Amino acid sequence: MTRINCGIPAQLTSIHTENSEVTAAELYSDGIHILQFQDYVGNVSELRNNDLILINGKVWSKHPYPSSIEKICFYSVAKIIDGHILVEDANRVRVWIPNKKPSIQIGDFIKYDFISKDITVIENNTANDFLSLDIAPYLYKPTDTLHYENFYGYSSLVSRIKRFFDINLRKKDLLKKYNSHPAKGILFAGNPGTGKTFLGKIIASEFKLPFYLINGPSIISKWVGDSENTLHSIFRAASQSAGGAIIFIDEIDAIAPARTSLSSQHDTRLVEQLLTEMDGFNSDNNIMVIASTNRIDSIDPALKRPGRFDRIEVFPPPTLNDRLEILTSKESTIPHEKLPIKEIVKRTEGFSSAELCAIFTEAIQLAVDHEREKISELDFIQGFNIVEKTRKKNGREYIS
C-alpha cells in the first residue's frame, strides 16, 4: 500500500486544464515539476493554485496534513547572486531562495517563509570580525613547527624574501620616516615543485597573522559573479583583521590571465576584480598579498607593476649546492644506511625540490616492501631511477 503522506513537499504554481498538466515548485529547493493529471490520486477538480502536494517519484497527491509542513525556517546568508541568496541553516544545509530585499547582506540572519516567500531580517551583519561562510575554507591555520630554517637550499633567495617581509611587515614604522608605504605584494615565479607554496606557509607561521590560502582554480565558479564575490569577501575579511593579514594566491595565472580581445567576460571580470582589490586596500594595515605562478608570462601585465606586486622573485631549479643541502637535510630525518648522496646530486641537474624529496619517498616504499628497517643504498639508487624515469616520461624541463 502506497503511503500518501510520503514525498517531497511542493506548492502548485499553475494549473493547465487544456493539456492536463500542473506545475509545482518544491518548497525546500529550486526544483520545478511538470505533473500530469492522470498521475494524481484523488479528485482533480479539488486542486487550486498554491495547494500543497507531496511528490513521490511519478506519483503525487494532495498533502493530507498541510499544517504539518514547516513553513518558517531560520538561516544565515552565505552568498548573494543574481536575485537569489544562498542560505545555510543550523545543520549547515544550504539552499537557494529568491531574494526580494536588496538590502540583505552576506552574514545576515533571516527568517524565511517558504509559502509566502517573505524574508525577514532578524539580525544584520555589523561585526568587524565577520568571516563569511564561503571564505572560511580559505583561512589557513599555520603551524608553529615551520620556520625559514625548514626551507632547504635557495639560501640567497630565502634571505632576500625574509628581508622583504621583515621590512614591510615588522619595520613599517621606519618606512613612514622616509614618507614611504609598505609594499602590497610579492610574486613567486618558477617551475612546479620549487617550494613556492611551502615558503608561503613558512611565512604564515613566522608572522602569526591570519593567512588566506587561495588556490586559483578552486575559486572559479560557474555562477556569474560568484568568483568575484568570494575574492572580494576574502580581501574584506583581511582588511578587517586588526593585526593585519596575508593573502596567498596560488596559481594566480588561473584567475588573472592576460586580457586580450579573445578573453572571456568571466576572465576579464575576475582580473578587474583582483586589480580593484589590490588597489583598494591600504598596505599600512599590515596586509600583504603573495602570489605564485608557473607561467609568469601568462599573467595580466597590469598586476606586475609596482604598487601591486612590487617584487617578483624567481625560483630556479636548485643548484648543485642546493641539491646537496636538500638531500642531506632529508637524509638526516630518515633511518638509513650509507647513501651515495654526492653521486646522486651530480645526476639530478634540473630536478625540482619536490622531485629530490620524491627520491626518498620512492626509496622508503622499496624499503617497506622488503621489510627493511633502514633505507639501503640500493633502495636509494632505485628511488632515483624511478623519479628520473617519471621526469623523462612527463617531459619535465625548466621554463624560464
Rank of each mutant, 00 (worst) to 15 (best):
T2P: 15
G7M: 04
I8V: 14
E18R: 13
S20G: 14
V22T: 09
T23W: 12
A24N: 04
A25S: 14
A25G: 09
G31R: 14
H33V: 03
I34V: 15
L35G: 04
Q36F: 06
F37M: 07
D39S: 15
S45W: 10
G57Y: 11
K58M: 14
W60A: 08
K62L: 09
P66M: 10
P66N: 05
G83S: 03
I85E: 02
I85C: 10
E88S: 15
D89V: 08
N91G: 11
R92M: 07
V93K: 15
R94E: 13
W96D: 04
I97T: 06
K100M: 11
I115F: 14
S116V: 02
K117P: 02
I119N: 00
V121S: 03
V121A: 02
I122V: 11
E123Q: 12
A127W: 07
N128T: 07
F130G: 01
D134I: 07
I135P: 04
A136R: 12
Y140V: 08
K141W: 03
D144V: 08
T145S: 15
H147D: 15
Y152M: 10
G153W: 08
Y154Q: 07
L157N: 02
K162Q: 13
K171G: 05
K171V: 07
L174M: 08
L174Y: 04
L175I: 00
N179L: 09
K184H: 00
K184C: 07
F188Y: 02
G190Y: 01
G190L: 03
G195Y: 01
K196G: 06
F198Q: 11
L199A: 05
G200P: 08
I202F: 12
E206D: 12
I219A: 01
I219P: 03
K222P: 10
S227D: 06
N229I: 10
R236E: 14
S239G: 06
Q240T: 05
S241E: 14
S241K: 11
I249H: 01
E251S: 06
I252A: 05
I255V: 09
T260N: 04
S261L: 11
S261C: 00
Q265P: 04
Q265N: 15
H266F: 08
T268W: 03
V271P: 04
Q273G: 05
T276L: 13
S283F: 06
N285L: 06
N286Y: 00
M288I: 15
I290L: 14
T293Q: 06
T293R: 11
I296N: 07
D297A: 14
S298K: 13
D300Q: 01
R305V: 13
G307E: 13
R308H: 01
D310S: 09
R311A: 15
E313D: 11
V314N: 11
F315Q: 02
P316K: 10
P318T: 05
T319C: 03
T319W: 04
N321I: 09
N321H: 14
D322W: 00
P335G: 02
H336L: 07
K346W: 02
E349Q: 14
G350N: 09
S352E: 01
S353N: 09
E355H: 11
L356V: 00
C357L: 15
L366R: 09
A367Q: 03
H370I: 02
D379R: 03
D379V: 00
I381C: 00
Q382V: 07
Q382C: 04
N385F: 01
N385T: 03
Y398F: 15
